[in-house]
Design a protein around this nucleic acid. Structure first.
Length: 234
DNA sequence: CTACGGATCGTCT
DNA sequence: GACGATCCGTAGC
């Protein structure tokens, strides 16, 4: 059974929520249409002392929702043309958040494709929701959703994954057996490994640039900057 | 494959 | 006035 994640899930430290979100399903409702995808990449931003976090200078007009209850949506404009989508973590007054960096597409690919076209051509299906800016474009996430409560919103929420869900992209070959249903090489029916790494694009953050607060599903092809194993450069 | 520059504007100094 | 939790196109190998 699919089940929406509630307050208790999000009101924990971001370094716990971020890895726990891997494998969960983001569902986006636009009118009577649905776009959904499996979370394969997240990053944790951990309070005012985290120099990579928007909370590093205290509460401001932009980041104030980070100080509210876990489970609210923090969306902001970046580089003047993209949005980034976060879910607030931890309890009220504690400014933590989880950046959603990549999804594996499941449903509503046609609409997602349409949404993305405003931002230019998309090369491959696996690139739809790979990267925080593209993900927001694909799901049509913008300032209008700032502060939305993901635990009871009609527009967006997070579900536990059902074991056999898969998209057209990852549907097994006609003759394939169920256990060969894969998500970027990782069978849905098996547990995945979580890999940690440095967060992307925050080289200015002094010692916090080296924190391993980026979480990915190991081997999943929909992770941003994923490289095929065995590929070497000269 | 890697490296690099430009787009573009709200937010904060 | 500077810059960014990004992305894409181009150039070169």
């Amino acid at each position: 059974m699919k089940k929406r994640l509630g307050r208790d899930f999000f009101e924990r430290p971001a370094v716990e929520v971020a890895p726990d979100l891997l494998g969960k399903i983001i569902v986006r409702k636009i009118g009577n249409k649905t776009i959904s995808g499996k979370i394969v990449e997240t990053e944790a931003y951990v309070g005012e002392e985290d120099l990579a976090s928007h909370a590093r200078n205290g509460k401001t007009e932009r980041n104030k929702v980070m100080y509210s209850r876990g489970g609210l949506v923090y969306i902001y404009l970046i580089y003047g043309m993209y949005y980034n989508f976060n879910i607030v973590a931890a309890k009220e007054h504690v400014p933590e958040a989880v950046l959603i960096r990549a999804l594996e597409p499941i449903d509503g690919l046609g609409l997602a494709k349409q949404n993305l076209k405003k931002f230019g051509r998309v090369r491959a299906d696996k690139d739809f929701m790979r990267g925080p800016g593209k993900l927001c474009a694909a799901l049509d996430l913008d300032k209008l959703l700032y502060g939305e409560d993901i635990t009871n919103s009609e527009k967006i929420w997070v579900e536990d994954s059902s074991p056999f869900c898969h998209s057209d992209l990852t549907r097994p070959a006609r003759r394939g057996r169920l256990r060969e249903v894969t998500s970027g090489g990782i069978p849905y029916t098996e547990k995945f490994e979580i890999e940690t790494s440095k967060r992307i694009g925050i080289d200015y953050a002094d010692i916090y640039r080296n924190k391993l607060w980026r979480y990915t599903i190991k081997g999943n092809k929909f992770v941003s900057k994923y490289k095929e194993p065995g590929v070497r450069s000269f």
